[in-house]
Design a protein around this nucleic acid. Structure first.
Lengths: 208, 208, 208, 208
DNA sequence: GATGAATGAGTCTTCATTCAT
DNA sequence: GATGAATGAAGACTCATTCAT
């Protein structure tokens, strides 16, 4: 391995070191309490080094978001390639998102952070970048839907709208998990999620 | 009017003065840039006074959220009392929420702030308080659904679950407004919302 | 003395305390090395307090500049009221500026700071504010010149231009004091200044 | 070309590369916002290399200043060799300085930076170095004046003093350009400059 | 009740300089 | 010769909260 490669590798390692720290903090103190200096302490790097690897805090968050999206994308893609029915694919993908929001809470929180912060918050180019990375996942699902339609499994005049509705519903439901116990009553949140998913998928068949 | 009443009244006036300021700031500088001193300047009250009327910043936010929820509640209640069909009621309520997110963007943002911040963020008792105020709206909608069922307009085994799904979907969709242009393509967001709403309501009829 | 007056007084005292510290630092570390935290330490106030009394560093500098200009103004005004010839007045004022640049080096430096920083540096309104305070001094001198002309002591078609030239020359010369020894050779700088002054004043008589 | 020469040449190329970058930055971000790392990026050299060719930032500035002075020197020298009258030479030189302050604003700013920063700022040896480079220009003008005197075009007992006054006035006037509009009123600054120049040159003839 | 001065830790960010490779 | 990663102090500025008056 040449010097150049080693350097490049080390750089990647450092960048990860920083992301690791940020991710850990995300989980422990919440996204609103992450500061560069906290990241630097946790990463055992100087503040200056953080800025050497990332232009600013925002960039770290975006890297984290992209990491999260990439992870989710892989899982979703995996399901999309399984040899199972279209409906089953949608169900599995939805459940993957649900598990993701629990098992990768840190990633989910940061994705949600970008989804739910007031729009003014980001500069347009940033916004586009963020949106585009998320878009990839939707495209996978779109393929499933379109394929389902072409094979007459689904009947849907407006697959693209359904696609967004599908994801928005799942996302909204997951956010509402916070109301478990106070608003949801005894209902388990996961049951609610499955119930809604069933309705969602059914609705693609008969309505337009 | 006795002394006591006057005092109570004045107290209310002051508290409103503060909320007015906070609300205005919410809209103009965004939730992340509100500080007590900014509120105090805008309200033409001293910093100390702010703390006399509200224990801390969080409490102001919560008051604001409750204000927003109360406003929305009134609108929703109004529709629920109209002499129109059950289905029509749900549609109108959904549209009210949509308009609310646009016309009362400040209130919507703060409600959304509480919905979407990571759970760790709030102390349990606070959380309960917040949730309960939001719950009132859901109860109104529940009545409509239950009534619809009892009158055989709707068929639904699990009205409570549907209720949550209903609201979560609407909320999720509104949040996705930010993706207009980058992800939604040319589709108008409002069309998407109406489309989803139609599906949602249809789904209460035939599926369970 | 009522509470209000005392408060107002105290506030003034504090503001002065801060200016005192800044002025002292100006002299000891130079204008490029003054920081808010240094000021706060020297003034024995917290950083926050500095910002309570002045919006930012710039404002402190401006206050200092205005102080300096006011001081100079008083001296200039004093001469202008003396019962001496017009020419003599100009000479004395010029010498006052010279002494000022030595005895109140701190003030001179900060005035010079505003005169010589690249133009882009300040926001337009600031610039205007700064310029206007300096303008007062020029107006006093203008009166002397105009009066001299009306009394046929001076002959000058363009008194306003002369006025600026007069001050610019003096200012330029004082700045060149730094070249004493390396460029000026053995010439005493003060002699140079007096020499130029003489020429300057003579030039008002015969040329236009 | 031997190895040594090539090395020396390369060295010069690198140093210029660095100055080019610094100069460009001077114009675009202003002297207060230049950093070594910015220079290194712009020069497409590593930070370390910058330090190899220049001991520190100050040295770069000085090199830049010398460059500027050299440029100005060439122009001034050119005029001094023209076959025109002594008075005309002084006028043309003065106008060259005026144009220089506009067309080579970057160079003028840095020269002015050294002229107007408080004296404490530089170490003595540096100061001498800076002064000496500027001195060369004055010497050219001195020749013109001395020659003018010997040819009875000028009458001046103290040519050296006049020389300094001459340059200080021009420099002071250029600095006052910033007061155009707020203090100078409607007067065009260039008119003021020409007016003063005329007076200056006239004063060499008749007064001493 | 009301005021507003005071605090000081905390925010993000920049920077000149060094040094192992 | 050249690189660029690493440092950490320093910069301006903000803010929630307290408390004497």
């Amino acid at each position: 391995m040449g010097v150049k490669e080693r350097k490049a590798l080390e750089r990647k390692v450092r960048r990860n070191q920083i992301l690791d720290a940020a991710r850990a903090l995300l989980l422990s103190v919440g996204i609103n309490n992450i500061s560069i200096s906290k990241i630097s302490k946790r990463a055992e790097l100087s503040v200056g080094s953080i800025y050497f690897y990332y232009r600013n805090k925002e960039e770290i968050f975006i890297a984290l978001q992209e990491e999260g999206v990439a992870l989710l994308y892989t899982k979703v893609l995996h399901v999309s390639k399984k040899d199972i029915g279209h409906k089953e694919k949608l169900i599995q993908i939805a459940m993957i998102y649900y598990r993701f929001s629990e098992d990768q809470k840190d990633y989910f929180d940061i994705i949600n952070y970008f989804v739910s912060s007031p729009t003014i918050f980001f500069k347009p180019d940033l916004k586009t970048q963020i949106d585009m990375s998320a878009r990839k996942i939707l495209l996978v699902i779109r393929e499933i839907i379109l394929d389902g339609i072409s094979q007459k499994v689904f009947t849907e005049n407006d697959p693209y709208k359904f696609l967004i509705m599908f994801w928005a519903t799942l996302h909204g439901l997951i956010q509402f998990k916070r109301f478990e116990k106070t608003v949801l009553g005894n209902k388990s949140h996961e049951q609610l999620y499955r119930y809604s998913l069933k309705k969602l998928i059914s609705s693609i068949k008969y309505i337009n």
